[in-house]
């Protein structure tokens, strides 16, 4: 064999090895979560209240709390995100402004999650005096979700052929009518895809909410906007710190499996929604 052929064989082997390592890691991670999680999984666990610092009982209100946080965050973020995307796509005429808007959005995307939590702690909890509140948690999560949704919505509005707009104007529609009747319906899937991607990320976030939105125990469903909630990620955090307590660890795995399933529901929907998006754009 020539040196070239040996180098090539080694190269292909190494790339297979690297892929094998990645595959192994994947199987290990998913396996560990599912295997350990299944042990504590039953209806009782899903539908009862946590007790004894989470070491016994279930995680009903943690699930409710997590969903509450991200649903409210979605409600808050969607109008702003769609508006911003439309602004970027349909209203900006100056390249400098366009560049600035891109920089701002990417900056927001680059801010580490813990910083969002700190910002919330300073601005809402301390300066505005809201106290620990799930609504503040939702606002912060909404801020984190904003760039993803703006970008995907922008891309899908932007990919609508100019001929659509021209035809619509030719029919006598004004700019707003074009947006509502043509651009929004056409780009709706882009916005939904973005929302789902952002949701998959937001529901698993711990650092942004742990200073500002969550309590350790004593909360079921929050009674007002300014109550704290219990959530799955912070519950896992509390349980992970007592990893040698069998019962607590067990429940930590159970909570992790439920959290991962929720993430998967969002990310698989995002995947399907994106496939459909492609289909539409290819029509």
């Amino acid at each position: 064999m020539s040196n070239r052929s040996i180098a090539n064989t080694a190269f292909v082997f190494l790339s297979r090895l690297a892929t094998g390592i990645c595959g192994f890691i994947l199987v290990f991670l998913i396996g560990v979560i599912v295997w350990n999680g299944m042990n504590s999984m039953n209806i009782q666990f899903l539908l009862s209240e946590a007790s004894n610092f989470g070491a016994s009982g279930g995680i009903l209100y943690q699930i409710v709390g997590s969903l509450l946080l991200v649903v409210m965050a979605s409600v808050l973020v969607m109008p702003v995100a769609i508006g911003t995307a439309l602004f970027k796509s349909e209203y900006i005429t100056s390249p400098a402004l366009f560049r600035l808007s891109s920089i701002l959005i990417y900056s927001l995307n680059g801010i580490p999650s813990v910083t969002f939590g700190i910002f919330g702690l300073i601005f809402f909890v301390n300066i505005l005096g809201t106290g620990i509140s799930w609504f503040v948690g939702s606002i912060i999560l909404a801020m984190m979700m904003l760039p993803t949704i703006v970008l995907t919505t922008y891309q899908s509005v932007n990919s609508i052929p100019s001929s659509y707009r021209e035809n619509a104007y030719a029919l006598g529609l004004n700019k707003w009518q074009v947006i509502v009747k043509v651009l929004l319906p056409q780009s709706f899937h882009g916005a939904v895809t973005g929302l789902l991607i952002a949701l998959a990320r937001a529901i698993g976030e711990t650092a942004p909410i742990m200073f500002i939105a969550t309590a350790f125990s004593g909360i079921t469903v929050p009674g007002s906007l300014f109550d704290p909630v219990v959530s799955l990620p912070t519950h896992i955090l509390a349980l992970a710190q007592q990893a040698t307590n069998e019962a607590a660890l067990q429940n930590a795995w159970g909570s992790s499996l439920v959290l991962l399933s929720l993430v998967l529901v969002f990310s698989v929907s995002a995947l399907l929604s994106r496939l459909r998006l492609k289909e539409i754009s290819q029509r």
């Binding site: 439309l86 602004f87 910083t115």
Partner: peptide
């Protein structure tokens, strides 16, 4: 028409303010 423009410009401004607010808050407090 006016409301619509207000909405779109408003959301863009809100987005920009969020980013700036985070930076200003961090700078002031450090």
């Amino acid at each position: 028409m006016r409301i619509s423009r207000l909405y779109i410009a408003g959301s863009a401004i809100v987005s920009a303010i969020i980013v700036l607010l985070i930076f200003v808050t961090l700078i002031v407090n450090s």
